[in-house]
Design a binder for these strands. Structure first.
Length: 202
DNA sequence: CCCTGATTCGC
DNA sequence: GCGAATCAGG
């Protein structure tokens, strides 16, 4: 694959939106995150300046790589051009409210998960799932990693917890394995075996 | 261990 | 210019 204008545009767009290099790489396809990062640097937009987030960051990094028992890299290389600038007033993405740390005081008691009109996520009615599984979820959610939307990956549980309309909203975030979208506990309530939902009298 | 971006350097 | 390998960190 080569860096066509379209691909570069998408790269720029996603990068400015705060997408990670790996996410961009997946989206583009045919390239690795390294390729993306490499390109990002060559384009001189390593600084995710979308508007004016980070004021100054003049690379105060000196060669920390010296006298290392590593290979034979540490070698002259002079400094690089501090010429970056002109990050264009690109879209200053609304940047989806990422992590909003709810105060630790939040509900001392285990609160049932009552979503407020969630379109996508599966939220089975509490009355038709295995009580044991529910209890397990309640337990697990106590130490949910409370990830923000941007922090979810293919290996994190994407079970939503709380009300999206408030600060008290996050995703479980515990490790999800085997390609499933949820952690073990949430898989338990998300996918019910037929036997469990059979014969539940109203 | 999972992930992140940063840098180097042979191609 | 490209990107794998590597580095450095969370």
């Amino acid at each position: 694959m080569s860096w066509t204008d379209e691909r570069v545009d998408l790269l720029k767009k996603m990068w400015s939106e705060g997408q990670s290099a790996s996410q961009i790489a997946k989206e583009l396809g045919g390239v690795t995150r390294n390729a993306v990062i490499g390109k990002v640097h060559r384009l001189g937009l390593s600084n995710r300046a979308g508007g004016a987030a980070e004021p100054a960051k003049p690379e105060a990094k000196a060669e920390k790589t010296e006298a290392k028992p590593v290979k034979a890299t540490a070698e002259s290389k002079a400094e690089e051009k501090p010429a970056v600038a002109t990050p264009a007033p690109a879209a200053a993405a609304p940047a989806a409210a990422a992590a909003a740390r709810p105060e630790p005081t939040a509900a001392p008691m285990r609160r049932a998960i009552i979503p407020a009109g969630q379109p996508l996520p599966p939220q089975p009615s509490a009355n038709e799932i295995d009580p044991a599984a529910l209890a397990k979820v309640g337990e697990v959610e106590k130490h949910a990693k409370k990830l923000g939307l941007m922090e979810l990956t293919e290996r994190t549980c994407k079970w939503p917890i709380g009300d999206p309309a408030t600060e008290e909203f996050w995703f479980c975030g515990l490790p999800s394995q085997a390609g499933k979208p949820y952690c073990e506990a949430h898989v338990g309530v998300a996918f019910q075996p037929m036997s469990a939902r059979r014969d539940r009298r109203r």
